[in-house]
Design a protein around this nucleic acid. Structure first.
Length: 271
DNA sequence: AAGGATTCCTGTTGGC
DNA sequence: TGCCAACAGGAATCCT
């Protein structure tokens, strides 16, 4: 499941193949994704030079002109692969970006939770414009979280997974960061001290940076831009470890459901 | 208005 | 072993 580190790795992986190159055409093999891939993508982008490839939250932005271009999300099973020599199309290959030099970027997404869209102004696009700060930026601070959580009864785990609060903290790393910070995921966001938020902010940054350094953790279906799977490169302390011993206190890890998502935590270490 | 519930989809997993 | 139901998950959107 691509989380922020996987998206970062993917964006970095495809960047050298795209930057300052020109798009020859875009082939849409199957437009059926979370939102239908626009029919006229190829017309809009044919002959356009790519001026930047970057990440915002879990969106990959392929810029052709200042602040406009393609918006790609990998959903939970999406991947981008660089194709340099002939390779048969796979079942869930939805879109191909074909470059002037015949390099192909293939978008594959079995579960179709992702998207490939275009935008004339990223900063005004509804998917992008209301996003919270980047977790690895200096804007993401304990003070900010404390401010945003004022009077909130919402569980802190759901709070930090809300992209309007902070982007890129997915289900796996939310559990991991809360464990690292020693915070009970059920605790109301509004009742957490500034000091605890400081610990949490550090934990989120650390967990994400670790994963990026490891090339991205994943469960099953992530394939990085080189086409190599990036399985489980990082050790997970609580996620998926129901009934296993806590690595700190040896008591069993619990699994609960919050916001229809599994949360794993240690009731002894996280209060 | 806030926050919980639903929704999209298919590959994998667990139970019988 | 084989079949099938349950499950997982990002995040917009709907609903209360």
């Amino acid at each position: 499941m691509p989380e922020l580190p996987e998206v970062e790795t993917t964006a970095n992986g495809i960047k050298p193949w795209l930057l300052n190159k020109t798009l020859k055409k875009i082939k849409v093999h199957n437009p059926s994704l979370r939102w239908r891939v626009p029919e006229n993508l190829s017309d809009n982008f044919k002959g356009e030079k790519i001026t930047n490839v970057c990440r915002r939250g879990k969106y990959i932005l392929i810029e052709t002109q200042k602040n406009s271009g393609l918006i790609i999300h990998l959903g939970m099973s999406g991947s981008l692969t660089v194709i340099t020599k002939e390779k048969p199309l796979l079942k869930h290959d939805h879109v191909e970006l074909i470059m002037q030099d015949d390099t192909i970027i293939r978008y594959n997404d079995p579960r179709r939770f992702g998207c490939v869209l275009d935008s004339e102004d990223f900063s005004k696009h509804p998917l992008i414009s209301n996003l919270g700060p980047e977790p690895l930026s200096d804007d993401f601070t304990a003070k900010y979280l404390k401010y945003k959580s004022q009077n909130k009864s919402q569980a802190v785990k759901n709070f930090i997974m809300d992209g309007h609060i902070v982007v890129g903290v997915g289900n796996i790393y939310a559990s991991e960061a809360l464990f690292m910070a020693g915070i009970n995921p059920k605790k109301a966001a509004g009742k957490i001290s500034l000091q605890k938020y400081s610990t949490l902010v550090d934990a989120i940054k650390k967990v994400l940076l670790n994963a990026i350094a490891a090339g991205g953790t994943t469960l099953k279906d992530f394939v990085n831009a080189d086409g190599k799977p990036g399985y489980f490169s990082q050790q997970l302390n609580v996620y998926g470890r129901k009934d296993k011993n806590c690595r700190h206190c040896n008591n069993p890890i619990q699994q609960i459901i919050q916001g229809q998502r599994s949360t794993f935590y240690c009731p002894k270490c996280q209060r």
